[in-house]
Amino acid sequence: MLKKTRKTTLAAALLAGGLLTTVSAQAATITVAVAANFTKAAEEIGAAWEETSGHDVRFSFGPSGKLLAQIQNGAPFDAYFSADTGRPEILVKSGDARDSFVYAQGKLALYSMNLPVDEQAEEILATGEFRHMASANPKAAPYGLAAQQVLEKRDLYQRYREDGKIATGESITQTFQFVTTGNAQLGFVALSQLRDPESPVKDKGHVWMPPVEDYDPIEQGAAALTRSERPEVVDDFLAFVHSDQGAAIIKKYGYNAP
């Protein structure tokens, strides 16, 4: 489902200066497919870009794999922000996208509202004394693959699967919901979800950051799609993501910015 960011106030300011007609003629709306983990950061970036550019951006959030499939089936997106670099490269090689780039590096976190994973993560994982652990689908969500790698390094993944302890979310968003609603006692989520200022669990619960060497770097790639009828507007949006203002927002939500 498309989600619209808040309306720009730039037009109102220009109206006072008699420039509204020019801006309206040039204004455009682009649609960007964005990996679910980047939802809040994308919304804030989009709102800031709208303010400075006079253009509008609509977002479609979901699992990276599902969004890729929609693009390959002709979905009218102008750009694609994945949670990995492999999927944008697939589009570049097929001619559906221009050169891809890394816009953020994500961080995996193990979160629980009640279990003291911040102090006893290794012990809790080893004993398996919980009903369910949430994790995103590793075939569709890079954060799910990272979680699988963390568990495999401890020889726990297959054991938990056979015991029915892993509650698999279609996306990292659904995985986060499993944990925050209590359907899972703990779960591997994106650090950005815990940094969301509007999150109901911000500054609550317990968090453990797995060693970064325990999983492949979650480098998140983006690309402008060749089907876009507004390439210059897309390029302006991507340039804003690369800007100091865009990088500051990306870091605010717990990512590393290139």
Rank of each mutant, 00 (worst) to 15 (best):
D155S: 11
A146W: 09
E213I: 02
V241I: 12
A48E: 15
E51H: 06
E232R: 06
L125R: 04
H55L: 03
P76Q: 08
Q105M: 05
L238T: 10
T31N: 10
E51N: 08
A109T: 07
E170V: 10
I124E: 06
R87P: 14
E51I: 00
A224I: 09
Q245N: 14
I172E: 09
T85M: 06
V34E: 12
P138I: 01
Y111M: 03
P211H: 00
V102E: 14
I249E: 14
S60V: 11
R227L: 04
G106I: 02
G246Y: 03
R58A: 10
Y80K: 07
P211N: 08
I71F: 00
H242I: 00
L91N: 12
V57D: 12
V32A: 03
A223H: 08
V212F: 00
V23A: 09
Y143D: 11
K93C: 06
G187S: 07
N73V: 02
I124A: 02
Q158Y: 04
M209F: 12
G254H: 09
Q174C: 04
I172M: 06
A13N: 12
A146H: 09
G187I: 02
S171T: 07
L194E: 14
K40M: 07
R159A: 10
D84I: 01
G65Q: 13
V34F: 01
A224Q: 14
Y215L: 08
E162H: 07
V189I: 09
V57F: 00
A79H: 09
L20C: 03
H206Q: 15
A140K: 09
T8A: 01
S24T: 11
